[in-house]
C-alpha cells in the first residue's frame, strides 16, 4: 500500500513515466488486436526493433554531421528519437505490407531478417555513439526512464489520435481485414484503409518503443490481445479487454518494479505472460470440466 501511495502521489518523481507506461499499456493492444487478427504476429516483433534502429540512427546523425548535442538537452534528443522512430516504423510497415500484398518471397523470412538485422544494427550504432546516453541503452532494456511534460504530451496526443481514429473507423478497418473482396465490391478503397491502419500501427509502435523499448512494446502489442482472445465473446469485448489488460498490467508491473527495484518493462511483460498462461490454463480446465461434467 505504501508503494501505491508513493506512486499515486502528485510529487512522485517518476509520475510522468507511470502515465506514459499506462498510456502505452492501454493503446498498444488496440492496434495489437489487428496484428493478431491479420496473423501479422511476426510484424509485431520486427516493427518495434526496426523502430528502435530508427532511434539509434537518429541519435547518431548529429555525431556523423559533426554537430555536438547540447549536454543537457534531453528534450531535443527525445524529439530526434521520436522522428527516427516514427519515420522508420511507418516506412517499414508500409514496405513490408506492400511486399506482403504482392505475395512474393517468404514473408516470415523477410520479417525475421528485418528483425535480426535491425537488432544488431541498433547495438552497433549505439555502441559507437559517444552522445548516446546511458538512458537510451536502458530504454532498450525496458528500464524506468524519466519523462518530461513535453514528452508526455507528445505521447498522449499521438496515442489519442490513434485511439480516436480506431474508434471512428473500426468498422471499415475490420471489414477490410476480415473480407477484403467484400470491401472492394462495396466500393471501399481498401488500399487507403490498409494504409491508415498501418500508419496507426506504426505511430503506436514508435511511441511505445520510445517509452518502453522494442521488446516490451512487442509484449504489449501481442500478449493482451492473445489473452483477451481466449475469453472475449465478440470483437468489442476483445478490443476493450485487451486494452484493459494492457493498461492494468503496465500499472501493476510498474508498482512491482518500483517496490522490488526491478526494470519496469520486463516486470510488465512477465506479468502479462503469467496472466496469459493462467487464462489459457483456466480456459482449458473449464473446457475439461464442462466436457466431463456433462
Amino acid at each position: 500500500m505504501e508503494t501505491l501511495r508513493q506512486i499515486l502521489s502528485p510529487d512522485f518523481l517518476l509520475r510522468n513515466s507511470v502515465y506514459t507506461s499506462v498510456l502505452i499499456g492501454f493503446a498498444c493492444p488496440l492496434v495489437g488486436v489487428f496484428l493478431v487478427l491479420r496473423r501479422l504476429v511476426f510484424m509485431g516483433v520486427a516493427l518495434p526493433q526496426i523502430s528502435s534502429t530508427g532511434v539509434a540512427i537518429a541519435l547518431c546523425v548529429p555525431m556523423w554531421l559533426g554537430v555536438l548535442q547540447p549536454e543537457h538537452a534531453p528534450h531535443s534528443e527525445h524529439l530526434l528519437a521520436f522522428l527516427g522512430s516514427t519515420v522508420f516504423s511507418l516506412s517499414a510497415i508500409l514496405v513490408l505490407a506492400f511486399l506482403d500484398r504482392r505475395r512474393r518471397g517468404l514473408p516470415e523470412g523477410r520479417l525475421g531478417s528485418a528483425y535480426v538485422v535491425a537488432a544488431v544494427a541498433s547495438i552497433l550504432l549505439l555502441s559507437k555513439n559517444r552522445y548516446a546516453e546511458v538512458g537510451w541503452l536502458d530504454l532498450m532494456k525496458g528500464e524506468i526512464i524519466t519523462v518530461d511534460n513535453a514528452d508526455l504530451v507528445l505521447t498522449g496526443t499521438s496515442l489519442a489520435v490513434v485511439v480516436l481514429a480506431l474508434a471512428l473507423f473500426h468498422r471499415e478497418l475490420l471489414l477490410v481485414s476480415f473480407d477484403r473482396a467484400m470491401a472492394v465490391t462495396l466500393g471501399k478503397n481498401v488500399v487507403a484503409w490498409d494504409v491508415l491502419l498501418y500508419l496507426l500501427i506504426g505511430l503506436t509502435v514508435s511511441m511505445a518503443v520510445l517509452s518502453v523499448g522494442p521488446l516490451i512494446a512487442f509484449g504489449f502489442l501481442l500478449i493482451p490481445a492473445l489473452t483477451a482472445h481466449l475469453f472475449a465473446a465478440n470483437m468489442r469485448q476483445l478490443t476493450i479487454f485487451a486494452s484493459l489488460i494492457g493498461g492494468a498490467a503496465s500499472f501493476i508491473g510498474f508498482c512491482i518494479a518500483y517496490r522490488y527495484d526491478l526494470p519496469v518493462g520486463p516486470a510488465d511483460v512477465v506479468l502479462l505472460g503469467i496472466l496469459y498462461a493462467l487464462t489459457f490454463a483456466g480456459q482449458r480446465m473449464a473446457g475439461w470440466l464442462f466436457k466431463h461434467g456433462s
Binding site: 487478427l37 496473423r39 482472445h229 465478440n234
Partner: peptide
C-alpha cells in the same frame, strides 16, 4: 475463405 480468429457473430 474466412479466418475463424475473428470473433464475429
Amino acid at each position: 475463405h474466412f479466418d475463424p480468429l475473428y470473433l464475429l457473430t
